[in-house]
Design a protein around this nucleic acid. Structure first.
Length: 802
RNA sequence: GGGGAUGUGGUGGAAUUGGUAGACACGCUUGGCUUAGAACCAAGUGCCGCAAGGUGUGGGGGUUCGACUCCCUCCAUCCCUACCA
């Protein structure tokens, strides 16, 4: 009788030996380096299945690379600042730091129990002064390079709670706690000039080994467009409005101008117009989130102002539209209802002229969004859109009415947050004038709170704010995306308190493989790329890009939505680890779907994963490797097993290394295990049979080692003769063993399968055809019909067309 | 509203380059073992049909000798939309 498989005992023992020998703490050496990074978590309390999936993927790849003789660095840390800590602090009257640290300890224990091969000596927490002090320094250096400025920007304001709300905290236009109608408010904030890098962020996407969909998303987000700025002078005024358009060829179709409710003209007019003032107030009753604005009903208010069309000199009404954003382009839209969907709807609603100025054919329906030939455009009629654009731009430029311009959709990054639990922005106000602190005035430490007292905003913390009568400290903290924009570069130097990026960072950067959720495809990844390029330009890092290769995992969903603490739909892995062991949980997560796909959580086949590991256990645990000095004589059946084992190894290698397709790798190993004939396991098996089984076992343990490291290591140590750990080497398949003399041929008639037959590889095409035609079912189907055509695909298929 | 993805048995999924649809599992059914259950073992399992056969990859259309795969169109679901991380 073999002992039962007791994963919890095995796993604790194996993990203890890793800790003792510090197996996964690494330093520079001669091997090729591999920096494998999984996105660090926000310490929300407990791990959920989304984390388990993400971190298992990273660990499987790290372990596979390590077995293939790479020097692998896989760190872990904590994105520790953020809103949930403050929410928890308010709800439960706990100190956000205590709450966060406790969560970190919990989650760290969970990560350790899952057996991830992290180098914990480089752990970092963004809420540590030794982390964020460097962030304040980066900010100062960015400022010195002219990448920092201040401007007004809109926020969600809760007039009852007197606080700024995050978009997430606004539900149907109401504050989540107070329930009151929120309003948009403009406040002064710090900005980073990410737009200075717009062009490079766009062009260097090409160099990246990233999934195409992520690159496309970033490209569209940056949104480079070539168009023209067109000046509309206002009637009876020196003032003018400038609108940007990518379609100057439709300029003769302009029948209104729309400006933002926040535009200075709007505010000016409202002073003497109560109904307009009311309209502007109404426009503020909408959340600042783009999705909400886009969904809101398009509303307009017609002013008495007229703009002069730059070419026809006709008078055009100026409207105020709630869909026009001030900090978006110029805050002025030229309305061309005939050729723009949104303008069309707006014009229909308010009875504004809709003119067709582009023609494609006689069946044109408005709005017509395609390019075509110009009509109703005096002086340009009959021209194709593209040449008309050039002509019109030239005309505008010569007459000082506008100019050709490249514009980006990307906006500068507002980094001010009106919160407590974040990195203090290192600035002061001297007589109200902002000044960013000098290097020798850093760090600005986040003031500690009383035990168990809820956070008060920094703006209300007098001890912190008031430096002197004239000098006040900045009360805002950084956006937490700042914290996560450079952590990848800090990790190798996490234990270095002398330099921000020491020689360890130099050695390990860039990240060779970055793994994380697809939800970060745009913001986090774009901000990090921007940081990296700015740091490069200050000679703080080399390379142009931080993440060479990217693997985006799909969401783990529960009840049809992304698993997250705030939605309250998380599934804790702990009960599963306790019941089945970490190896089973890891195996199940990898087996249940490929990494990129989103996945509705279900525990339905955890049992299957567990069952498979028990089978491996019962096959290997009481067995010892037979150290044959020379190869025995193999029968045909022996060779079939060896072929299967070597073919599986080849496939699994490809699945791990190239395809990141762990579910199919596991399926192949399961298939291999099922393929072993029972007599090979018996005591009276022949030497050749024992040899083949031993070889198969070696392959199985090695192939599983990245996914189920504890079981593999334990069985390896009891089974094999050398004293190297299971992750010391990866086996090599023998390609001579993969050769076969025969293949299965599928025989089709008119594309439908009518038979299958085994064909010797030596036969020529004519012989194969005869062979196929001799099949009973094929003969019957063809009957008296004449064969019109024969299609033969080498060693796969033959199709008779009748 | 915009951008990106996904859709295959009762369930998770496989089919890697346009070439056998449903590998590998879960579940279920039947049988074995057992006092009984659990566990384990064996066989079966897309749908319709006694069978021959037909049919089948979200719906509709197309290209092709051949389509889960390519094209058009519609529908559903998920993610992002700049202050959740």
């Amino acid at each position: 009788m073999t002992k039962p498989y007791e994963p919890n005992i095995i796993e604790k023992t194996v993990q203890a030996s890793w800790d003792k020998e510090k197996r996964y703490e690494v330093v520079a050496d001669d091997r090729e380096k591999f920096y494998c990074l999984s996105m660090f978590p926000y310490p929300s309390g407990k791990l959920h299945m989304g984390h388990v999936r993400n971190y298992t993927i990273g660990d499987v790849i790290s372990r596979f690379k390590r077995m293939n003789n790479y020097n692998v660095f896989q760190p872990m840390g904590w994105d520790a600042f953020g809103l949930p800590a403050e929410n928890a602090a308010i709800a439960n009257k706990v100190n956000p730091n205590d709450w966060t640290q406790k969560n970190i300890e919990n989650m760290k224990d969970q990560l350790k129990s899952l057996g991830f091969s992290y180098d914990w000596s480089k752990e970092l927490r963004t809420c540590d002064t030794n982390y964020y002090k460097w962030e304040q320094l980066i900010f100062k250096k960015f400022a010195d390079r002219g990448l920092v400025y201040r401007k007004k920007a809109i926020v969600n304001w809760d007039p009852v709670d007197n606080t700024v709300l995050a978009n997430e905290q606004v539900i149907d236009g109401k504050g989540w706690r107070s329930g009151s109608q929120i309003e948009i408010k403009e406040i002064d904030q710090w900005f980073l000039k990410i737009t200075d890098y717009a062009e490079e962020l766009l062009t260097s996407l090409e160099k990246l080994d990233w999934p195409e969909n992520v690159k496309t998303m970033q490209k569209n987000w940056i949104g480079k467009s070539i168009g023209a700025e067109i000046k509309y002078t206002l009637k009876g005024s020196e003032e003018s409005l400038t609108a940007f358009s990518t379609r100057p060829d439709t300029i003769f179709g302009v029948s209104f101008i729309a400006i933002s409710p926040n535009h200075s003209i709007s505010t000016e007019l409202a002073k003497n117009d109560d109904s307009l003032a009311q309209f502007l107030a109404q426009c503020k009753e909408i959340s600042a989130a783009e999705a909400d604005m886009a969904k809101a009903e398009k509303l307009g208010y017609k002013t008495k102002i007229k703009a002069i069309h730059p070419i026809t000199k006709e008078l055009i009404p100026v409207w105020i539209g709630n869909f026009v954003l001030l900090d978006y382009g110029t805050g002025v839209v030229m309305g061309v209802p005939g050729h723009d969907q949104r303008d069309y709807e707006f014009a229909q609603k308010y009875g504004i002229d809709i003119k067709q100025v582009i023609k494609v054919d006689d069946n044109d329906q408005l709005p017509l969004l395609d390019k075509g030939k110009l009509i109703n455009s005096p002086g340009f009629d009959g021209m194709a859109s593209d040449s008309a654009i050039k002509k019109i731009n030239k005309y505008l430029e010569e007459n000082n009415l506008g100019k050709q311009l490249t514009q980006f959709r990307l906006r500068d990054w507002g980094i001010s947050r009106q919160r407590y639990w974040g990195c203090p922005i290192p600035a002061v106000y001297e007589d109200g004038v902002p000044r960013i602190l000098e290097e020798n005035e850093l760090p600005v430490e986040l003031p500690e709170l009383e035990k168990n007292s809820p956070p008060i905003p920094l703006s209300k913390n007098k001890d912190f704010i008031n430096i002197s009568n004239k000098t006040k400290r900045e009360a805002d903290t950084f956006d937490t995306f700042m914290d996560s924009s450079w952590y990848y570069a800090r990790f190798p130097s996490a234990d270095n308190d002398k330099e921000i990026f020491g020689e360890d960072s130099d050695y390990w950067l860039p990240v060779d493989l970055y793994i994380g959720g697809i939800e970060h495809a745009i913001l986090h990844l774009l901000y990090s790329r921007f940081f990296h390029k700015a740091l490069r330009d200050m000679d703080m890092v080399k390379e142009d890009e931080p993440f060479k290769k990217l693997l985006t995992q799909g969401m783990v969903l529960k009840d049809g939505a992304k698993m997250s603490k705030s939605k309250g739909n998380t599934v804790d892995p702990q009960p599963y680890i306790d019941k089945y062991g970490a190896d089973t949980v890891r195996l199940y997560m990898m087996f249940t779907s490929p990494p990129e796909q989103s996945l509705e959580w279900s525990e339905s086949s955890v049992e299957g994963a567990s069952r498979f590991l028990k089978k491996v256990w019962s096959l290997v645990s009481s067995r010892k490797y037979n150290d044959f000095k020379e190869d025995p004589e193999f029968t045909k059946e022996d060779l079939a097993l060896r072929r299967k084992a070597h073919a599986t190894l080849k496939k699994v290698e490809n699945d791990y290394e190239v395809r990141y397709s762990f579910n199919t790798a596991i399926a192949s190993v399961m298939e291999l295990l099922n393929f072993i004939p029972d007599e090979y396991k018996a005591n009276d098996a022949s030497d050749a049979q024992k040899f083949c089984l031993d070889e198969t076992i070696i392959f199985i343990l090695k192939m599983l080692a990245p996914i189920t490291p504890h079981l593999s290591e334990h069985l390896w140590n009891s089974f094999f003769v050398d004293d190297l750990a299971v992750d010391a080497w990866w086996p090599k398949f023998n390609k001579d063993l993969l050769e076969v003399e025969e293949f299965d041929l599928v025989v089709q008639v008119n594309g439908k399968v009518r038979g299958k037959t085994v064909i010797n590889k030596n036969l020529d095409e004519k012989e194969i055809e005869t062979e196929a035609l001799s099949l009973e079912n094929v003969k019957n189907t063809i009957g008296a019909n004449k064969i019109k055509k024969v299609i033969y695909i080498k060693e796969k298929i033959i199709n008779f067309v009748i």
